[in-house]
């Protein structure tokens, strides 16, 4: 199946380029930091506590740091290619163990937010798309435009002030209980739900206006039959594509929301790592976010090829979605 091979080939290349970009950025970051390079790399490998002048000298020798930045860079990229991410400069733990630890919390938060967004966004979008021009539809357009202008941190702020400070219903920070999850997940979900509802509305409206939707009714099918047999099938690919692309915004939201609510995920860890100039951790979180995007979108592509076997379906859907 050539379309399958093409998708996997493209996504593999994308993953490779993501790795190289992250590698370049973190390598330059490493070099830009003040202090001894070899010492920092050694600390990145063995942790600060285990780093001695000998270890640094060994690193200098082994990497041939005196040979110039190009070779050092290739070595740096080589480490990434082997998924050897080193150790955190702050905790001394390996980056892998730190990240696997935090990823669970982030996935919990992001998963809850996406689920919530879909539960709100999909039905509302479909409902309004089938009734374009109605009061509900115009209200949706208004709300989704306003939501787009509402930064997540402001929303989080408002939710904290209302539910945590004024009403004292929910905790503003912490982790472990379901009640801790509510506010951050809601903060993350509301913007996503508004955008998803809007995109679903556009896709539904487009399908409902199409000649094939009209012809299906002319064939004698009821509205319900037309929607479930011809509507859903055609609405799904663009909405799925959109959800895949939203992963970047989700990752951004995770960074902000985790920091505001003190949620111990990788977004929180990234801000910490930046604060402490912990390059290996920055690199690790950046790779997880970038490769997570690639993975999610590979799954989206594969799902879409099952629904839409046309070879060109994906590209046209992608092009159409950018400015929905």
């Amino acid at each position: 199946m050539s379309s399958l091979a093409r998708i996997l080939g493209f996504r593999l290349a994308q993953a490779g380029v993501v790795g190289v970009i992250v590698g370049i950025a973190t390598f330059v970051m490493m070099r830009a930091l003040p202090g001894d390079l070899a010492f920092r790399i050694a600390a990145g490998r063995y942790g600060y506590d285990n780093t001695t002048a000998e270890a640094a000298a060994q690193v200098r020798d082994e990497l041939g740091l005196d040979q110039g930045p190009l070779l050092a860079f290739l070595d740096w990229i080589g480490d990434i290619a082997r998924f050897d991410l080193g150790r955190s400069l702050v905790s001394g733990e390996t980056v892998w163990s730190e990240i696997t630890h935090q990823l669970g919390a982030s996935l919990q938060l992001a998963g809850a937010a996406v689920l919530l967004a879909m539960l709100i966004g999909l039905p509302v979008g479909i409902w309004c798309g089938l009734r374009a021009g109605s009061t509900a539809d115009r209200l949706l357009i208004l709300i989704s435009s306003a939501a787009r202008a509402m930064p997540q941190f402001l929303l989080g702020l408002v939710l904290i002030v209302i539910f945590a400070v004024q009403l004292r219903l929910l905790p503003a920070a912490g982790h472990g209980d379901v009640k801790h999850l509510v506010l951050p997940a809601l903060t993350l979900a509301l913007g996503l739900a508004a955008a998803l509802a809007r995109i679903t509305r556009e896709a539904t409206h487009g399908v409902a206006q199409s000649s094939y939707y009209e012809f299906a009714r002319w064939k004698g099918l009821s509205d319900r039959q037309v929607f479930f047999r011809h509507g859903l099938r055609n609405i799904t690919p663009p909405v799925l594509t959109y959800l895949g692309l939203q992963f970047v915004l989700l990752a951004e939201g995770v960074v902000v929301v985790e920091t505001i609510f003190g949620w111990p995920g990788i977004g929180h860890a990234l801000i910490h790592a930046i604060f402490h100039r912990d390059v290996p951790m920055v690199q690790g979180t950046a790779l997880v976010m970038g490769l997570g995007f690639v993975l999610i979108n590979t799954l989206v592509d594969l799902a879409i090829t099952r629904i839409d076997p046309r070879g060109d379906g994906r590209s046209s859907n992608r092009a159409g979605i950018e400015h929905g």
């Binding site: 000649s211 094939y212 009209e214 012809f215 011809h230 629904i307 046309r310």
Partner: peptide, 15 residues
């Protein structure tokens, strides 16, 4: 029974 204009647009592209 209606035979629509430009029937290639009137058929569900995914069915």
């Amino acid at each position: 029974a209606v035979l629509p204009q430009e029937p290639w647009l009137a058929l569900d592209p995914l069915m």
